[in-house]
């Protein structure tokens, strides 16, 4: 039985727009487990971004219970939310958002700087290992402008892994990539899930079908598991 790292119980999220209440999430009940790659799909405006924000502690739910490692997460201060993000969560976005004036290795070190558990002298070694893991160690000294889109996204993945989080949330990670690079990125995410991490990917790509363990469909504010036709 795989361990649940995130548990959502009747999560609801409302927005007020022009004095009108919009229910984006209408009661999400779901548990995310270690060692599993989840693919979340849904049409535009279905609330995928809202769900990602809540999952990634970037926003709080209107009601419901959110458990991270069985800890109830409600009304967090900025400091505590930041600590949880640093310790347990890694993010990959469609735009790689690497710092243009830091090389690949330095970009990977950025999240480690605030992690007191990682000694200073280990940071470079760890960053190089992560770059090796994503297959671009030979380009550790290159700056983002010297890397292709696929390579930049791999650096972004290494950065997301910098503090060894067990949960990786990827929002359209291959949105800006070609098919070849898309496969490379999905394979990397697959490998990470095989190593025991919980990978949550929001994507429109059908290619994910070959890599995901579970398919989730966000429709009408509800999250339902659908059959994965690999």
């Amino acid at each position: 039985m795989k361990t649940a790292v995130i548990k959502m119980e009747n999560i609801k999220k409302d927005y007020n727009s022009l004095n009108e209440k919009i229910e984006v999430l209408k009661g999400i009940n779901f548990s995310f487990h270690k060692g599993t790659l989840y693919a979340i799909k849904g049409h535009s405006g279905s609330g995928k971004t809202t769900l990602i924000k809540i999952l990634g502690l970037m926003d709080s739910a209107t009601s419901g219970e959110y458990y991270l490692y069985n800890n109830s997460i409600t009304s967090l201060t900025d400091k505590i939310a930041s600590f949880y993000r640093m310790k347990y969560l890694g993010f990959i976005f469609q735009d790689y958002n690497l710092h243009p004036f830091l090389n690949a290795c330095e970009n990977v070190i950025v999240p480690m700087i605030i992690n007191k558990d990682i000694p200073k002298k280990e940071r470079v070694i760890r960053a190089r290992n992560l770059l090796k893991k994503v297959g671009i160690d030979d380009r550790w000294h290159h700056f983002p402008k010297e890397l292709s889109g696929g390579e930049q996204q791999r650096v972004a993945i290494a950065r997301a892994l910098a503090n060894e989080p067990e949960i990786i949330i990827a929002d359209e990670p291959t949105g800006n990539l070609d098919k070849k690079n898309e496969k490379v990125i999905f394979q990397l995410l697959r490998n990470m899930a095989n190593e025991g991490k919980c990978i949550i990917v929001v994507t429109h790509s059908d290619e994910i079908a070959k890599y995901a363990d579970k398919f989730l469909l966000l429709e009408n504010g509800l999250l339902t598991e659908v059959k994965n036709d690999k």
Binding site: S82, F83, R85, N97, I114
Partner: peptide
């Protein structure tokens, strides 16, 4: 701003 967003997502507090 986007990079600041990444820093925040990585665990940097507002004060950081």
């Amino acid at each position: 701003l986007k990079y600041i967003g990444i820093l925040r997502a990585c665990g940097y507090t507002k004060s950081n």
